[in-house]
Every structure is written in structure tokens, then in C-alpha cells.
Amino acid sequence: MKKIVCRCHDVTESDIEDAIDSGYDDFESLKRITGITTGQCQGKTCMDLARGILERKTGKPVTQTTRIRSPIDPITLGSLVKSTAKKK
């Protein structure tokens, strides 16, 4: 029975724990190896849960959020292309 942490990429609690055990024990590495916070919802569900697991396993507080980049919500490529094309 699965305990889902990241719904977008189907990352489970044990995936996160395994990754931490294999040495990815800071938030940025954990993000890169498991894909958490990089799905369609951009971490709105998983960030807080993963942070909790990381803190529980390492005993160290997570004091930084992960880097956020625009766009924060999926948009069609077309809408971006169009807007730059217009400028020229």
C-alpha cells in the first residue's frame, strides 16, 4: 500500500526515505533525484511533506525553500511563442 508524497510524479514516502538514505539528504538534491516539486503543481502538496520527512530523518531543520522559477503554472508553449513573435 502506497503512501504518496508527490502526486504529480507518484513519489512515495519510501522513495524519499531511500533517496535520503543513499545520501541525497538536502532538499535540492532530493528534489533533483526524485523529481518532487517539479510536477504540474510545482510542489504545492509535496514540498511540505518532503520537508517533514527530511527533517525527521536527518534531525536538521530545513530553513530554505527550493528555488522557484517562472512560470509557476503550466502554460502552452504557443502562448509564449506568440507573445515574443509579436514584439519583433
Partner: peptide, 18 residues
């Protein structure tokens, strides 16, 4: 769901969880 094909319903109803 994307990897394990688990059934998913709505969760947040405000466009956040996808």
C-alpha cells in the same frame, strides 16, 4: 496517476493539486 496509474479524484478543488 503518472507512474503507478492509481485512480485519482479531485483534492483541492481550487486548481492547486493538479
Amino acid at each position: 496517476s503518472i507512474k503507478y496509474r492509481r485512480p485519482r479524484g479531485f483534492f483541492c478543488a481550487i486548481g492547486r493539486c493538479s
